[in-house]
């Protein structure tokens, strides 16, 4: 439908995309900048790509952050999903009010406070049990604590408008509770599970404050490194690193969508072929 309304809508759409993507595109372009100043363009070059690949500290930090984010996302999704089920499916159990508060706490508590609390706990535990040493484990545990809360909220709200008759129908057709979960409930809430996982991954990947408290002297995550190096002046290597992360993340999301689509179509075709053959 051509006309003024649709042109206005298109303009709004273009502005929206520009708002989201122009900074990222700028950053990608500037990763090929020759200048040693991040904000001044002086010619095309791949020299900062080379610099980054030789920068061991930066690569180590990136790897550490990535590993922590991966572990965090997986564990937080499992724990958060379980918590979400408890909140959505069990209106009454002992300590429900306290449990609800505990889930909400990390969402509203200042990270500084969580950081101090976690640090105190880890130091005390380390003294008594000899575990955990500050580093990978403490960072991962701290991240899981708060990102599981986010996952729980995502899953709880998905389950709130879930039609339970579908689960009852499965049970009526002979499925035991675990089979119902595996074949009906989880596939139907899969988009929320993926969303929760991605949310947890992102939260962990760019967390700085909490991580500062619990990281200890030996470990440095990417946000910590970037933040400390900013004080000495930003190196264009940051642009390169960010470009790599954006590219990998974008490819992963597109790829996952494509795989899910293909699997679904394949299933439908199989089922269709099966009944036609019979």
């Amino acid at each position: 439908m051509p006309g003024r309304t649709s042109r206005l809508l298109l303009a709004v759409l273009a502005f929206g995309y520009a708002f989201l993507y122009v900074p990222i595109l700028t950053m990608i372009v500037y990763s090929f900048n020759e200048s040693r100043l991040v904000t001044v363009w002086s010619g095309f070059s791949v020299k900062w790509w080379g610099e980054l690949l030789r920068n061991e500290a930066m690569l180590d930090a990136a790897l550490l952050s990535f590993q922590i984010a991966l572990v965090n996302a997986c564990v937080a999704t499992v724990l958060g999903t379980m918590a979400g089920f408890a909140l959505a499916r069990h209106p009454r159990f002992p300590g429900r009010i306290a449990f609800t508060g505990l889930i909400a706490a990390p969402l509203v508590m200042p990270e500084v406070i969580m950081g101090i609390a976690s640090l105190l706990l880890f130091v005390a535990l380390d003294q008594v049990l000899g575990w955990p040493r500050r580093g990978f484990a403490t960072i991962a545990i701290a991240h899981i604590t708060f990102s599981a809360a986010y996952v729980a909220v995502v899953i709880q709200s998905r389950l709130a408008d879930f039609d339970r008759a579908v689960e009852e129908a499965a049970m009526d057709l002979g499925a035991r509770p675990f089979t119902v979960l595996r074949t009906i409930t989880l596939p139907l809430i899969a988009p929320s599970l993926v969303a929760g996982w991605l949310l947890a991954f992102t939260l962990s990947m760019d967390d700085l404050i909490l991580t500062q408290f619990v990281a200890g002297a030996q470990s440095q995550t990417l946000p910590m490194l970037v933040y400390s190096s900013v004080r000495l002046g930003v190196s264009p290597q940051i642009n390169v690193l960010a470009t790599i992360i954006v590219t990998v993340a974008g490819a992963a999301i597109v790829g996952a969508g494509w795989l899910m689509n293909r699997a679904r179509r394949q299933r439908d075709r199989d089922a269709y072929a099966a009944t036609r053959r019979a």
């Binding site: 039609d163 008759a165 579908v166 009852e168 129908a169 009526d172 596939p187 439908d268 089922a271 269709y272």
Partner: peptide, 17 residues
């Protein structure tokens, strides 16, 4: 076996499944 008022069909599965 029960036939539900809302039918409660599994939305992620084909008719045959």
């Amino acid at each position: 076996n029960m036939m539900f008022q809302s039918y409660a069909l599994f939305p992620h599965m084909s008719v045959a499944r």
